[in-house]
Write a protein that binds this DNA or RNA. Structure first.
Length: 554
RNA sequence: UGCCUGAUAGUAUAAUGGUAGUACGACGGUUUUUGGUACCGUUUGUCUAGGUUCGAAUCCUGGUCGGGCAACCA
């Protein structure tokens, strides 16, 4: 019962509405993506909000594609959006499309023309812009504004019939050219586009603008709370105006601040650019803040939902630290991911007093966080092991409690060893470390009485399997690449992907299952990439483990 | 020099005229066969100037700073 949580301002509004008996207590929200790109973590915030509201107040949520601009939209995006919403764990009441309402919207437009509230304008885009004036100067009406209702009706019908080329005419609301809110200066309702639509095909050559589609779609569906982001605040008077003049269901619009995450970009335009210019491996590149990218990276739906819960909902601009997202996935995976050993940057360790050719089988629990360790698996131990290069220091730093000459450390689930010596090549790189082991320190049966501070992971050289491991870092070098001088792409982090072609993994890891996260002990959480095959395993690092030691170093 | 919006620890987010709290981060400690986890502790905040009030983060006025708005995009 986490009912301790205080309400966000939208939940407050909903509760007030319910208490006041508005809409008979009914709550119906919608999630209205335009199918012109893949969903990202910012959309996840909106999805969690809209679907969460409905869930909390016994309502429902429609998935409505805002597909009023055929030249930018595509079924590929429709499909990915549905996948992503489902993957996040939400079910929509109805799958709908603004294009379902094109006929109705056309009737609405005719109705407004008949009421003298809309007119056909033959001006060019430049002329219309000029006639709109500026924020400090009112706009000026043109000759078309006073066309008769009859003429407007005829022209609009001709627009629909395809008599005019793209851009020749538009339908505009007759509102207020002097309005201080620029959106009210006779906004466009329809434009001519002889374009093929992904659902309506070639039926239409005129398409409604957002402002003449969204509110009416909400009203048609009887959406009670239409939740969108802050940039639509100035559109709200228009939203209400159309609903009022059309005398249709009074949906209400509420706006919240969109999510900004540091070290990434969140605009579909920029994400599209990264994809098209091949800076990343598609929309689902694990470095992308897209839902599909996060999924491929190894994020879980629960971790993303938790993240959206923690960031809250308010109206002030915000910049969330990506560290919070990382906290959420660690918190989730810590409880569920099985532990395995893998050596990413190997150096050979030779146990000089361990018999050559001997092999012992050790076991380790799958997850120390689980009740009974969640079972266990076995792995072989022998005289030569791979260990992590940075688990040995030629000249140990103070408080370094791993391996060094004369230093003792435990090999996880095996013996305590003592560093004895090391071998270097001509370039001065350490190629081999020699140590001795304490036979009485066998894991689970330790009678040595020795206490060591450090424990390191290892993989037997003779038994190790290999895998490609991909380490990801933030995609951009700066917190807010979209707000820096110059092109945001100038700030791409050149080291955002590091590929380790041949990491050594413990034998059991050969059985890794796609979609099942695993923790490489002391290294982080990993998941199989979509291109991984049994003959060539590829692991993506989802996130590192928190590393208190590394932090002090830097 | 128009209109709309917003401003609470480093980052987010509560407190709805009555003790400024929570989370993440940072820092310190305990436990630990993951320098992980868990647990404990510390640190840092109401943009500013007035006003109303017994009492203001909250209400009022002025200012400052941030964001948005003049696409045949959504």
């Amino acid at each position: 019962m986490s009912e301790e949580r205080s309400l966000n301002f939208i939940e407050e509004i909903v509760e007030e509405d319910i208490a006041a008996g508005k809409n008979e207590g009914r709550v119906l929200t919608r999630f209205p993506p335009e199918p012109n790109g893949y969903l990202h973590i910012g959309h996840a915030k909106s999805i969690c909000l809209n679907f969460g509201l409905a869930k909390k107040y016994n309502g429902a949520t429609n998935l409505r594609f805002d597909d009023t601009n055929p030249v930018k939209e595509d079924v590929e995006y429709v499909d990915s959006i549905k996948d992503d919403v489902r993957w996040l764990g939400f079910n929509w009441a109805n799958e709908l499309y603004a294009s379902d309402y094109f006929d109705k919207l056309y009737e609405f437009a005719v109705e407004l023309i008949k009421k003298g509230l809309a007119y056909v304008d033959d001006s060019t885009p430049a002329e219309i812009a000029a006639q709109k004036g500026t924020p400090t100067e009112p706009g000026t009406p043109n000759q078309y504004r006073s066309r008769s209702i009859i003429e407007n009706l005829e022209l609009f019908a001709e627009m629909k019939a395809g008599k005019y080329p793209d851009g020749a005419k538009v339908l505009r609301a007759k509102l207020d050219l002097a309005a201080p809110n620029m959106h009210l200066r006779d906004p466009l309702m329809y434009r001519i586009k002889h374009a093929h639509h992904h659902r309506t095909g070639d039926k239409w050559c005129i398409y409604p603008m957002y402002d003449f589609a969204h509110g009416q779609s909400d009203a048609i569906e009887q959406i009670t709370h239409s939740v969108c982001t802050l940039e639509f605040v100035p559109h709200r008077p228009l939203y209400d105006w159309f609903i009022n003049k059309l005398n249709i269901f009074p949906s209400k619009q509420y706006e919240f601040a969109r999510l900004n995450l540091n070290y990434t970009v969140m605009s579909k335009r920029k994400l599209l650019q990264l994809v098209e210019e091949k800076h990343v491996d598609g929309w689902d590149d694990p470095r992308m803040p897209t839902i599909s990218g996060l999924r491929r990276r190894g994020y879980t739906p629960a971790s993303i939902r938790e993240f959206c819960e923690r960031i809250g909902v308010a109206k002030r601009e915000n910049m969330i630290d990506v560290g919070l997202l990382e906290f959420c996935i660690r918190e989730d995976l810590n409880k569920t991911a099985w532990r395995r050993m893998a050596v990413l940057d190997p150096v050979k360790l030779v146990i000089t007093n361990y018999p050559e050719g001997q092999t012992e089988i050790f076991s380790g629990e799958n997850n120390p966080e689980a009740e009974d360790g969640d079972g266990s698996r076995e792995f072989p131990f022998s005289r030569e092991l791979w260990i992590e290069r940075d688990d040995f220091m030629e000249v140990p730093a103070k408080k370094y409690f791993r391996l060094g000459v004369g230093l003792m450390v435990r090999l996880k689930n095996a013996y305590i060893i003592k560093g004895e010596d090391f071998v270097k090549d001509a370039d001065g790189n350490i190629t081999e470390i020699h140590c001795s082991y304490i036979p009485e320190s066998r894991s689970g049966n330790d009678t040595s009485g020795i206490n060591v501070k450090g424990t390191i992971h290892w993989v037997s050289v003779a038994h190790a399997k290999t895998a490609e491991v991909r380490l990801y870092d933030r995609l951009f070098k700066v917190e807010d690449p979209g707000n820096e001088d110059g092109d945001f792409k100038d700030y791409i982090n050149p080291d955002s992907l590091q590929i380790i072609p041949n990491a050594y993994i413990e034998p059991d890891l050969a059985n890794a299952v796609s979609g099942t996260p695993v923790q490489f002990m002391r290294k982080g959480y990993f998941t199989l990439d979509k291109y991984s095959i049994p003959d060539k395993l590829i692991f993506n690092r989802t996130v590192t483990l928190k590393d208190g030691w590394a932090k002090k170093g830097s």
